[in-house]
Write a protein that binds this DNA or RNA. Sequence first.
DNA 1: AAGAACGTACAGAAAAAACTGTACAAACCA
DNA 2: TGGTTTGTACAGTTTTTTCTGTACGTTCTT
Lengths: 188, 188
Amino acid sequence: MGLDPGKEAQHAALDKIRKRVIETIGRNMDLYGISLSTGHLYGLLFFADKPMTLDEMGAEMKMSKTSMSTGVRTLLDLKMVNKVWEKGSRKDLYEVEYDWYQTFTDFFDIKWRKSVESNMMVLRKATDEINKMEKEYAEDPEMMEMLRKDKAKLQDAFAYYQWLDRLIDTFENGDIYKLVPKVPPREN
Amino acid sequence: MGLDPGKEAQHAALDKIRKRVIETIGRNMDLYGISLSTGHLYGLLFFADKPMTLDEMGAEMKMSKTSMSTGVRTLLDLKMVNKVWEKGSRKDLYEVEYDWYQTFTDFFDIKWRKSVESNMMVLRKATDEINKMEKEYAEDPEMMEMLRKDKAKLQDAFAYYQWLDRLIDTFENGDIYKLVPKVPPREN
DNA sequence: AAGAACGTACAGAAAAAACTGTACAAACCA
DNA sequence: TGGTTTGTACAGTTTTTTCTGTACGTTCTT
């Protein structure tokens, strides 16, 4: 490192290009609920030509190893990064999941699915309770009207979540690629 | 208001049901990059039987009108809430967009599309610059190898974003419903 | 078995985001 | 036109999140 000044200059030019890509992609990763610096960490790993250790990341990001640890775990939870085993090194090594289609799918499977399930659960419960109340207040027209309206809203919402659930299914089972085929990356 | 104690008690029972739904749905709205309290605001509007003013929301949420203003704007930007015109009142009125399929689509059109575009832009630029560098460093095999690797990554990423772009197209033009049909909400 | 290296839990500091109250511009009313 | 009413910009405060350094348990090495 730092022996050949020519090599360093070349590195600098390439680094500048990488930095801009990392910056942009990292910034847009807030869609995945990821902080800016974790997004940058992801970008760093994306361009790394080999799996990296926490210490290497810390050096590169100029941040503490603790932060790298938590950042990597966030990415690991979303399966955006994989732990890699390499004989020799006893440090943990990480590399990005380069299959971005898979990353996209995993994100929905992990985050959206959980949300869909808990929402459907609460909607089901609420509908049940309203059904009970409808028996209880059968003689009160005003109340019945409110219950009817609320139940209709709950059922519409429930139908939507069923749809969303099946949409996520198509991500997982690959049916989505029948509708929207993957593009082969261009040659040149 | 507050005249008939029986009515109030009924209201309380229904309110409890609503609160739990609002709480759950609101919490899960962080997927849309929305804070918890804005999520609650959305839930409030979801159950409101008529369009609400900022003051009404503030009273209900026990929060300042300023917060309601910013919260509503967030929801408005995502088209989760619509401004409603009603003759007589000179206050602004808001109601939720009850077509959740539309809300889903709008979210991707607004947030993801923007992200996809900026990422594709930066990837295109970076690829161009690498192409230039490849001419410049044609005699340096080590450098060429790095450039080749980076370019391959950029192109893979680009292909993915093209796919994502077309996926969002299917949300917008409704083709997605050919693959995953909407469910009619159940009767009872 | 002793020592060193590694990753993370935890508490405190720093930074960012959410919330409030005041002030003011625009729209409306009389 | 003068006086209200309504929505929001802005500055300051509170709350939440992110980041760091230390401490410690675990694993590997010799």
